[in-house]
């Protein structure tokens, strides 16, 4: 199963994602340049973290108009699995592939630490190998990760099961203290109605090996493998 990792000017977690896929998961990965108009036949797309276009105007606002994003939108519409991590999540929201928006953290601080998230939906390509309610310990590093949307949008996401991750305590309790950036209903990640496009603020690709402090993020990439039916190797 070949993963495509999109590289925008200012992406800085592209190599982390490539490393996680090729060195830990043991699958091929290709970098896709933001000016590419083809995804070159990859089986899954990762929009990595970073500061695409310097976060100018709004996070993800310029990147969404990159040529490659048209190909990503077509891939997503055809049911292809797309994972947006941090800035990638912001880009997916700006592009309208996911609903809502990420604004400045409520505390107006750049938060860089390990947090816990509870898996709320396992019927996605990136959570299929999780157990319902599983708690993952993942790093975050963002200044603009507060998830917001109109109340009716959030109600619809909840009732459709499109909330995929919620910030929680280590035991899985969703509390105000654990809501690291003030996100509406502690939302850390969501998916589209067909559940093949997933975005989240934490960085699973930086938590795939124990030496990095946590290997909990690997399950997202293992899930994609299981989803495609390709054996790990």
């Amino acid at each position: 199963m070949t993963f495509g990792v999109v590289v925008f000017p200012g992406s800085n977690c592209d190599h982390d994602a490539h490393h996680a896929v090729t060195q830990v998961l043991g699958q091929p990965a290709e970098f896709l340049w933001h000016k590419d108009t083809s995804l070159r036949g990859v089986d899954a797309v990762v929009l990595p973290g970073g500061f695409s276009y310097g976060d100018y105007l709004r996070t993800g606002a310029i990147a969404r108009f990159s040529p490659v994003m048209q190909a990503v939108a077509a891939f997503a519409a055809a049911g292809g699995p797309v994972l947006g991590i941090c800035n990638g999540f912001q880009i997916l929201c700006e592009a309208g592939l996911l609903e809502g928006a990420l604004i400045r953290n409520q505390q107006v601080q750049f938060r860089c630490e390990h947090v816990h998230v509870r898996v709320e939906q396992i019927a996605t390509p990136f959570t299929a190998a999780c157990t319902p309610g599983q708690v993952l310990r993942l790093p975050i590093a963002h200044g603009e990760g507060q998830y917001v949307a109109d109340r009716e949008v959030i109600d619809r996401l909840e009732s459709n099961g499109q909330v995929v991750f919620r910030y929680s305590a280590a035991d899985g309790r969703v509390t105000d203290d654990a809501n690291v950036n003030g996100s509406s209903r502690s939302i850390a990640g969501i998916c589209n109605p067909t559940r093949n496009v997933v975005g989240l603020m934490p960085h699973p690709e930086r938590a795939c090996e124990r030496v990095l402090g946590s290997a909990d993020g690997l399950v997202l990439f293992e899930s994609a493998l299981g989803w495609s039916g390709v054996p790990r190797g």
């Binding site: 606002a61 108009f65 929201c93 700006e94 604004i103 917001v148 109109d150």
Partner: peptide, 8 residues
């Protein structure tokens, strides 16, 4: 199209 995000 670009300057404002109608979501927020």
């Amino acid at each position: 199209t670009l300057l404002a995000n109608p979501v927020i």
